[in-house]
Design a protein around this nucleic acid. Structure first.
Lengths: 212, 212
DNA sequence: TGTACATCAGTGAACGCGCGTTCACTGATGTAC
DNA sequence: TGTACATCAGTGAACGCGCGTTCACTGATGTAC
């Protein structure tokens, strides 16, 4: 974000330090546990200092959510690019990576999917509401999914045609599994449980998606 | 809860009035917007009165969540019992009812699935943690799902065998779709969108589940 | 090299807010005699 | 029927809490001359 220097201006990079502190808070206390005052305290500054770097509390949280999405999208892309085997297997690997990332980073996953971050507040005038920055950051994972499906179509694993319904079903299932595991709706789940269930779900889905 | 009388004791049935006010608050402001003080105000009593009916704030919220689960389970059961056609169609009707209930009652749906309501706080002594009352209430919808799958197996639509993996995949997919629609992760969704997408998802799932 | 100045990141006191919870109390009701 | 009493639902003042945000300020830094 800011260029690196040996001993920079005042704190150095308070913006990054605040984001880092907020991430720690997020992991310790969940999305609602993030506090401007506590983030400032952990960054070693007074509680009014953050206002020089973020317009308000929601500004900090938005920036954090965007950073979370970037890390998440990178993890998925890595899975897609590095998984071995044919495209259908690499597609499944993305699904597994999705679930694993959620189990490894539950608080980030919850923050990323907070509905209030996706929708701009209603405009006072009649202007069309713009896409929020978080919503834009959320598009990358979904586009990767479409890419993967297109590759599976090109390789003959999935019938050609509109990708949206397929992507929707696949994404909804994997996302649903992740939510359910994170929230402990099936009881306490280990990462191994997640792998097993994700394999199960992608298998069942695959049977439904595969060309015959 | 309390027996009906013409003009009962003091307020009459403050407990029910508080639950009703809390439900209104839940719908207006979401789960975090529920406040003992505001619920008391809306029930027309002072803000200390609720302590005669609930041990504390979380007691009120737990009772509310349980009531929500009962209404939800009733809606699903009604769909299963009254939908026309063969069992596989009635199974799908339950999935549609699940999504519709979520879209019609988004705040209740969110409350029901709050993870902190499912898990008892860690015991100070080494005693085994008991299932929370909310977790017990959450079992009924899942059991209905198992019943439906069993019926589909009995009727030859689904291969015999362990029902758990099937139930898991089906539930996770439908739950995931509901979460995604409620949170607006696909953009604003109407109930009609929900119906269409739920049909799509259950169709794809069905292709994966159907015996061949 | 030195001086004056503009910039702006960080300080610390203060404000107002709504909240959960406690506590001594009040007052309406049901019941025993 | 009337009286004394026990019960307990509801009252209102108070406490302490952490929070977001504002504001006048201070002080370190970079830069123009």
């Amino acid at each position: 974000m800011s260029r690196s220097r040996e001993r920079p201006y005042h704190h150095g990079d308070l913006r990054a330090a605040l984001l880092s502190a907020a991430l720690t808070l997020l992991r310790e206390r969940g999305p609602d546990g993030i506090t401007l005052r506590e983030a400032a305290k952990r960054a070693g500054v007074s509680h009014a200092a953050p206002y020089h770097h973020f317009p308000d509390k929601s500004g900090l949280i938005e920036a954090l959510a965007i950073a979370c999405f970037e890390a998440f999208a990178n993890a998925l892309e890595r899975a897609w690019l590095t998984a071995p085997g044919p495209s259908m297997e690499r597609f499944r690997a993305v699904g597994l990576a999705y679930v694993q990332y959620g189990l490894d980073h539950p608080a980030e996953f919850r923050l990323m999917n907070r509905p209030e971050l996706r929708h701009a507040p209603p405009t006072t005038d009649g202007a069309a509401r713009e896409e929020t920055a978080v919503a834009a950051a959320a598009r990358k994972p979904y586009e990767l999914l479409l890419t993967a499906i297109a590759a599976c179509q090109a390789d003959g694993f999935i019938a050609h045609g509109d990708r949206e319904p397929l992507a929707l079903t696949a994404w909804v299932s994997v996302h649903g599994l992740t939510v359910v595991l994170i929230d402990g709706l099936l009881g306490p789940a280990t990462r191994k449980d997640g792998d097993r269930l994700a394999y199960q779900v992608t298998q069942t889905l695959g049977d439904g998606l595969l060309r015959r």
